[in-house]
Simulated scan of single mutants.
Amino acid sequence: MRSRPLTRLLTAVLCAVGMLGVAGLSACSSSDASAGGKITIGFSAWPGWNVWQVAQEQNLFAKNNVEVELKWFDVYTDSLNALATGAVDANSQTLNDTLMSVSGGAKQTVVLVNDNSTGNDKIIAREGIAGVGDLRGKKVAVEEGTVDHYLLLLALAEAKMTAKDIELVPMPTDAAVAAFAAGRVDAVGAFAPFTTKALERPGSRAIATSAEFPGAIPDHLVFKADVVRDRPQLVQGIVNTWFDTLAWIKENRDPAVDIMAKRNAVTTDEYKAYDSGTTIFTRQQNVDAFTPGTTPQHLNHQARLASDFLLSTGLAKNPPNLDGLFNDTFIKAVPQ
């Protein structure tokens, strides 16, 4: 989940929809990943996405007759660009970032809810700041446009405040955490595993988390729309593999945690601390989320709220088209 410098993402989206012209084509990358039987999936540092690493190391994709190449991205932004330009067929990304790409013209389809953030996105403040109301006039570092920026605004609104009541310091998430740890800002918005570093500052504490805003930060497997259209059997195999992997993890918890902790370069104890902050979705929770509705559990409802956020902050110039964005075909076809 996680963060996104907007200029690079905009370039990627323009590449994807063919709007840069001949002179701009050198900025766009191409991939033959859609050829043959291989599917390329991008993922990056977030507890809900490390399940893919387990699937690969336990050879579970082969069980469902799909050939998958996983691409790990140290920088989450790069994975967004990779999907927008076609360098990967699918990516693990947040709803907010998917909506941002779609608003720029990218054709993408959500086929799976990996998880909801239920505490692993946090607003962390220095000693002496007891709650969100104490942020008035304080320096708060966060990456603009990210889900943690969204979380900050939700928390401020609940405290009957707005961004005008604080001094917002925009910077990439890793830099924001470093600035907080060094004492240069009073608070920071960040996600796991960056939250671990932020909380090492003596006296620091989380004053707001995603646990307080159920459903606001969902994470997904998102495909290029043409892959879903042209290669549905492979998409189905990958969605099936996700649930096979969850079953394997349930039966082999310790080795699974070892795999996932190593992938995120944290200790197993640190990784276990993330458990309650990321709620992995069952098949039924997926079905419920894809069903249209007006409560926090429904994706269409959260998409409307997130779209309003992107438009109100000026991060998106056009409202994203939600028609066809959520495809529940594959979830419903998962063997029970």
Rank of each mutant, 00 (worst) to 15 (best):
W248P: 13
A187G: 01
A216V: 05
A211D: 13
L168R: 09
T282Q: 01
A216F: 04
E251S: 13
V287G: 01
T209V: 07
A211W: 11
E158W: 04
D269V: 13
E212I: 05
R231C: 14
Y271M: 02
F213H: 02
G237F: 05
T278L: 02
E167I: 09
V185S: 01
G215N: 11
K262P: 03
D244N: 15
K250E: 15
R229K: 11
R263G: 10
T162F: 03
P232T: 12
R253S: 08
D275T: 13
K262D: 14
I238D: 02
F243C: 10
D269E: 15
R253M: 11
Q233T: 12
E167D: 15
D230H: 08
V169C: 04
I238K: 06
A163Y: 01
G189M: 09
R184W: 02
L156C: 05
A182V: 02
A256W: 00
T245A: 08
N240E: 11
L246Q: 15
A157D: 14
M260Q: 14
P172D: 15
V235C: 13
R201A: 15
T268D: 14
M260K: 13
F243I: 09
L153D: 15
T162W: 04
D226R: 08
A225K: 14
G215E: 04
G237V: 08
T245C: 07
T196M: 12
E167L: 08
E158F: 09
Q284I: 06
A247H: 10
V185P: 00
A265T: 13
F180Y: 00
